[in-house]
Every structure is written in C-alpha cells, then in structure tokens.
Design a protein around this nucleic acid. Structure first.
Lengths: 147, 147
DNA sequence: GTGTTTTTAAAGCCTTGGCTACATTTTTGT
DNA sequence: ACAAAAATGTAGCCAAGGCTTTAAAAACAC
C-alpha cells in the first residue's frame, strides 16, 4: 500500500526543528538557575545553595551540581561555603530571562489564560520562545494596550 | 543587609512550577515520537526506524531506544526488523498532540508570529501548554475567527 | 569556648537521551 | 541464487540532571 506515497507533506526542515527544541531545552536549566540566583540576590542580598535548592524544588546536591555547571559556563562564581553570585554575563542572561518570562505571562493572560495558570505554564514555555516570537508578543501587547 | 527581608515576593508554589515543568519535559519526547510515528504511518503506511530517526534528527540507535521506551510505556508495538505501530493509547496520544500542536501554531500566528517561526517554536512550546491554557487558546481563536 | 544545629560539600547511583562502532538481518539488483 | 546494499539491532560511551548517604565546615546557642 502507498508504495508511491512519496508525495508526503513532511517539511524538509523538520529535523532542525527538533534539534533546535533540544538545544533550547539544554539552555533551559541554566536559565532557570541564573534567574533564581538573581532573584535571591535581589531579595535577600545573596543566593545560598539551600535557598536555591528549595525554590527550585530539588535537593541541595542537585543545586550544587547546577551551580557547578553555571560556573563552568562562566555565568556564576562562588567560593566554598559562601553564596553564589552571577558574572556580568550571568546577570545579563538572568535579566533577559526575567523580561522574557514577564512578557510570556502577560501574553498568556492577554489571550485569556488565568494568571495562575499563565505563571505555571510560562515556567516551561518561556525557554522555547524565540527572539522573533518574543518581539511579536511585545508588539501584540503594545497594540492591545493602545486599543 | 536585608536581614529583615523576609517580606519577599517569592510565590510559595514556585517549586511546584519547576517540578511540573520538569514533568512536562519528561513526557515531551514520548509525545514527539508518538506523533511522528503516527505521521509516518499515515503518510507511508508504516513507520520504519530509519525514517523516524531521520525525521527526528537523531541516529537510528537513538530512535530505537525511544521506541523501546514507547513500548515499555504501552504506547507502541513492534517486532524485530519490522515497522513500529501505535497501540490505541499511543494513537490517542498522538492525536491529542497533533491537535494541540495545530492550536499552538494557530495561536502564535494569530498574535503575529511569522508562520515559519511559529512552527519552529511550537515544537518546543507545545509540551508545556496545559489543558487550561489550550482551552483558552481555542476560545481566543474562535473569538478572533468570529470577529 | 564548646557543643549542637544548619549548611555545604563529596561520593556514588540511576535514568534519559544523545552518540559511535560493530554485528546481523532483510532487501535488492543482476 | 547470491552478492552487495540497506536497515535494524546490540553494546558501550558520555553528559545531564535527578537522587541518597556520608563527611566536613560554619553558624549559633549558651
């Protein structure tokens, strides 16, 4: 059956889409931790491993590992038994992530998603929102605000 | 500094949000493979490992492993050197995923995202769209269509 | 200042989802 | 029918990101 079904409609760039989604996922955790560290520093003056872990919903060894990866990527610095701090690069990343998060939540709410759900879903969603899509969201929100 | 900064604004359910995002991510690959197998069966009558792998942008051992996990989860069946097929449950999942994917793409386009970009981003986005958000998207699209 | 409690670190295990390299089976061409 | 090619399977490696358990260091109470 359908031996001559070569007339399919699979987009030729489909593999790239999945590869890109996987790449985004690899960045996601770095982004989440960087933002969390930034939040904690802002709120409490420093980011302790224990606080990072409890906010992220993981055990502290897991948080320690994540911080190690951040350090390896040049996004954070820390000394043993001291808090974690972000490099300039890490702080930039955190700021971009935070802004993107806000935009995504606002857009979800704008199209009718309940705020609580918007926050929930944005946590996973945001990492897959490209620059182009983000700009589109901003334009949409501006337009809606100026209605 | 800020020793009395206990008046922070960290939502108490933040850990749950991250845990939920991680759970969604764990489902993502199952969903992607199930949908891909469904697509291939529809287009070509069967889903071969080689085709699954090339469409997903991975090597065939990786596709084989993913199929093994689908089988373990009761979503797919296959016999050695033969194509892969979905169980009823797997087919249901694929259909839900496909519908959700379409809705997400439509919504992105509706708020001004270029179609090509919408397809790109939806690939990663869709797995984090909850039922509630999906319903909101559908309502929004209905309303926009009836404008 | 000493002892307890809290925090951090370190080591080691598990699963997932990639990969390469190699073996085997099926399919195909002649 | 048989050899070559293609597809599938198997084994083993790696990094990521979870976990628990155990050890050490810092902070705190008194």
């Amino acid at each position: 059956m359908t031996k001559d079904a070569e007339d399919n409609d699979a987009p030729p760039n489909q593999p790239e889409r999945f590869q890109q989604a996987r790449a985004a996922q690899a960045m996601a955790i770095l982004e989440d931790y960087a933002e969390m560290i930034s939040d904690l520093i802002e709120e409490m003056g420093e980011a302790r491993i224990t606080d990072i872990a409890s906010r992220m919903g993981v055990t502290h060894p897991t948080a320690t590992k994540a911080v190690a990866r951040l350090k390896r990527e040049g996004l954070a610095v820390s000394r043993p038994y001291r808090g974690v701090f972000l490099t300039d690069e890490g702080a930039d990343l955190a700021e971009r992530v935070r802004a993107r998060h806000r935009t995504v939540v606002h857009l979800l709410v704008a199209v009718g998603v309940p705020p609580e759900t918007a926050e929930m879903d944005a946590e996973g969603l945001e990492h897959h929102v490209s620059e182009i899509t983000l700009k589109a969201f901003e334009r949409y929100l501006d337009a809606a605000a100026a209605k």
